[in-house]
Design a protein around this nucleic acid. Structure first.
Lengths: 154, 154
DNA sequence: CTCGGTGCAAAGCTTTTGCATCCGC
DNA sequence: GCGGATGCAAAAGCTTTGCACCGAG
């Protein structure tokens, strides 16, 4: 079985660590070791994950963090724009790294669950139009397309 | 307090009833009175709602349906394209009528929770591009913009 | 008459909370 | 040392399931 873990990238790790540190300081939050282990764990894996995935992975590596801390830290990371949170129509949230990857959206296969990421510059224009029409400042968006692989996908 | 219930529209009711009937027949499902009362209840109200809203509303009107039936019927209605299901970043699903309203997307205020609906023809082009690029048949999409009312909203 | 649908309550799952302890500042 | 953060387990909230009964076909 293929190893889907990315090699640890020390430069990226240092960068996100710095961003998180600044965020915590600006928001008068403590820089606990648990928070940084969670951040590191996230940035050394690829793809989407959920809170339970992450909790179990930390447990397996004997990090001894609790679910409460995982959820708390995920929220901090969302607020510091280091990860994004998705609700792809399931009852539980999925997350993914946000730093160092381009803004993108998702195309999901209804049959096999495959998630494809794509970039779509035209969305920017749509956001600008809506901002103007409704006099709102658009902070972010989520576009998900649902479809089926034409040649089957199982 | 303003009455937000729409007047019952017999023509619309008859149309959706017919669509649902056809769907049930095609899928060899029984045409139970509970399923039709739920459909009617949904089409005689406006705006977004969740399963619990609907369950309580039915109870209040002494329809004597169970949560299980509400959830079961909501799924059938989603599959028959009579309602759409949304996960606006919360942990519980919201639904809305789909028949007789134009395809639209949502703009949500992060502060006050206000939901604005908008139509955006340019999305169609995006869907066509992605369909071509990834060789997938796009069945549906969900676009949600998150922002803040520029003049405040409380 | 059959067997799928229903009501009810209990179970399941993700997420949140309460509380005693711990540790960053 | 103070007060926020943590771990643990219990609770909460939405949704699904098990089971006996009912009723659509």
């Amino acid at each position: 079985m293929m190893n889907i873990e990315k090699k640890i990238d020390p430069k990226l790790n240092a960068e996100v660590r710095k961003i998180f540190t600044l965020y915590l300081e600006e928001n008068k939050q403590r820089k606990t070791p648990e928070r940084f282990s969670i951040l590191e764990e996230i940035y050394n894996q690829i793809g989407h994950f959920d809170a339970e995935d992450l909790y179990l992975k930390m447990k397996r590596k004997s990090y001894n963090v609790s679910r409460a801390t995982v959820y708390n830290t995920l929220e901090l990371l969302v607020n510091s724009d280091l990860i994004t949170k998705h609700q792809f129509g399931e009852n539980h949230a999925q997350y993914e790294k946000a730093y160092g990857s381009r803004q993108h959206d998702h195309l999901i296969c209804i049959n096999c669950g495959k998630v494809i990421e794509f970039c779509e510059p035209r969305l920017q224009q749509i956001k600008e139009s809506m901002s103007e029409i409704f006099d709102m400042e658009i902070k972010r968006h989520a576009l998900t397309l649902y479809g089926t692989c034409k040649l089957g996908c199982k």
